[in-house]
Amino acid sequence: MSPTTAPTTRPRIALTLGDPSGIGPELAAKLVADPANRAKADILVLASAAELDAAAAEAGVEVPHGPTAGPDAVAVVGSDLADQPVARGRVSVEGGRRAMADLESALAVYERGEADAIVFTPLNKAALSLAGMAHEDELRWFAHRLGFTGTTSELNLVPGLTTSRVTSHIPISEVASCISAHKVAEAARLLNTVVAAQGVERPRLAVCALNPHAGEGGKFGSEEIDHIAPAVALLRSEGVDAQGPFPCDTLFIRAREGEFDGVVTMYHDQGQIAMKLMGFEQGVTVQGGLPVPIATPAHGTAYGIVGQGVATLGPTQRAFDVALEMAQRDA
């Protein structure tokens, strides 16, 4: 592949179709069909012209495309697995292989200096695993692929609130053993940096407890006493405005009302359930900590509605806008 863009200072976004077994192609087509999005950035789509045309037809939109990206068209830059048959509406090894191949290609486009950020539409972790992804999720795969050994965390964003996670895609039975003051502090420092980069002068961070009622002084678990509270104390000694640990069942009500700019969660669903209730139509996941700006909608492949043209664009649109903001900050 050799993506091209017209001479410009406009941001350049590499866009993948995600898992083609799901609604990713439809969402990608809807995104780039909007002339307002093409006006914001040069968009490089990792697909063939035939694939993009098919996705556009399924979505009921028209997508102008060619070899060069600009306000009038997106650049179709191909894929190593373009035009390969893929089962639709279910987990498939073919879908996982295509998603992985396109993520690899998107990183290569970025590394060649031909894109400033990456957006990928929804993936399926079971399909990725079938296709050979040995890491717990794509964030750890990205870090391994980039040789990045710094702090990473999936960050979830709705307007006015960002969350980070101490643990992510691991079994609930393993969460408690993976909580430490060091990991809590790392997740909070990353969150503080990210929220500050959004323009918040002194981010107000809340840290979730792990156990019911924040452990009730050790009655329901000691992680708050042994790890989470010491991490909060350490953060405050470093000048980070962190508070907690707070019981999760009431914390997000306070966050929704604007008391905090960011929340550190201990595990995946502790934050994801609240964030999706607060703003599913605008939810975004950022691959936090990586040296590459990467964003994706914070929902899955929605196999049940594949081919119906009814997938909601909101989260993908917001992911595009967030990636654009990150690219412009890094410029």
Results as ranks from 00 to 15, higher is better:
P247Q: 05
R236E: 02
L191T: 07
I172W: 08
R256G: 08
A242D: 01
E224W: 13
A209R: 09
E216P: 07
E186A: 15
V200L: 06
V194N: 00
K183A: 12
G217R: 04
S164D: 03
R165E: 03
V194C: 02
E201S: 15
R202W: 11
I172P: 03
N211D: 04
A187E: 01
V184R: 01
E224M: 12
G221W: 05
H182Q: 15
L235E: 08
E186K: 15
V175G: 01
G244A: 08
E216K: 01
L190M: 14
E186Y: 10
P230K: 05
L210M: 11
R236T: 00
N211W: 04
V194K: 13
K183I: 01
E174C: 11
A188T: 14
H213P: 05
V200E: 01
E186L: 15
A231Y: 01
T167R: 07
L234S: 09
I253G: 03
A233Q: 13
D249R: 03
E174G: 03
R189M: 07
A233E: 09
H169G: 02
A229G: 01
F246Y: 13
L205N: 07
E201Y: 12
A196L: 10
I225F: 08
S164A: 14
T163F: 14
P171T: 10
A229I: 06
S237F: 12
S168W: 10
S177L: 13
P247G: 07
R204N: 02
V240N: 01
E257Y: 09
I253D: 00
G199F: 12
A242L: 02
I170H: 00
V200H: 09
F252K: 03
G199W: 09
A197Q: 13
L251D: 02
R204C: 07
S168D: 11
D226P: 00
